[in-house]
Simulated assay, not measured.
Amino acid sequence: MNPLILFLLLFVGIPLVELYFLIQVGSQIGAFSTIFLTVFTALLGGWMVRAQGFSTLGKVQQAMNHNEVPALEMMEGAVLLVCGILLLLPGFITDAVGFLFLVPPLRRWLLTAGLKGAGIMRPVSTTETENREQTPRIIEGEYRREDDDGPGK
């Protein structure tokens, strides 16, 4: 896709659609109610992102304490950052998308589906793990001791 078209969609199209929906909702429930609802969703979303961010940080620390790589947790943190940006932007569509990504099982499922679709993450077969645990790793080669070949011998 042409980067210029993507730029126009992101920075011109989305705000126009958001503005249209804000005007439609404002004509139905009133301007002050629309402004209150927009500010309320931003505050609620910010609070929820903060709480889930601390939860994700705890998961990262726990994984690192077990000597594991917290790759998925770090990606969840990046998605939470995007959620926070979407929820702070005024508009109902960006708020809906932001709140959808705040559901932890949905967020994790979307991340794993995206990683599997990109070929980055693949399932490990049980035979690979069984063979790795049962058979010892043997590296064949020749060696000689350097201390036996010294000039004093």
Rank of each mutant, 00 (worst) to 15 (best):
T127F: 15
M121L: 15
S125F: 06
W109V: 07
T127A: 15
G91V: 06
A96L: 13
V124Q: 09
W109A: 08
K116I: 13
G98E: 01
V103M: 05
L100V: 14
D95A: 15
W109D: 02
V97I: 15
P123M: 09
F101H: 06
V97T: 10
T126G: 07
P90N: 15
L110S: 13
T112S: 02
L115M: 14
W109Y: 13
P105F: 03
W109K: 08
T127H: 13
V103T: 12
P90R: 04
L89G: 07
G98N: 04
I93D: 05
W109E: 04
D95I: 13
F101M: 10
R107N: 07
T94P: 09
W109S: 05
F101R: 02
P123R: 06
G117R: 04
R108E: 02
K116Y: 11
G117E: 03
V124E: 08
R122M: 01
G119K: 10
R108N: 00
L115I: 03
G119Q: 02
L89E: 05
S125I: 09
R107Y: 00
K116A: 14
P123E: 14
T94I: 09
M121C: 11
G117C: 03
P123K: 08
T94A: 14
I120F: 12
V103G: 04
A96Y: 06
T127D: 08
G117H: 06
F99Q: 03
G98Y: 01
D95S: 15
A118K: 13
P90M: 13
V124Y: 14
A113G: 04
V97F: 13
I93N: 12
F92D: 09
G119L: 01
R122F: 02
I93Q: 12
T126C: 02
K116C: 12
L106E: 04
A118E: 07
T112I: 07
G117M: 05
M121S: 14
A118Y: 11
I120E: 03
L89M: 09
L110V: 14
V103N: 12
T126Y: 10
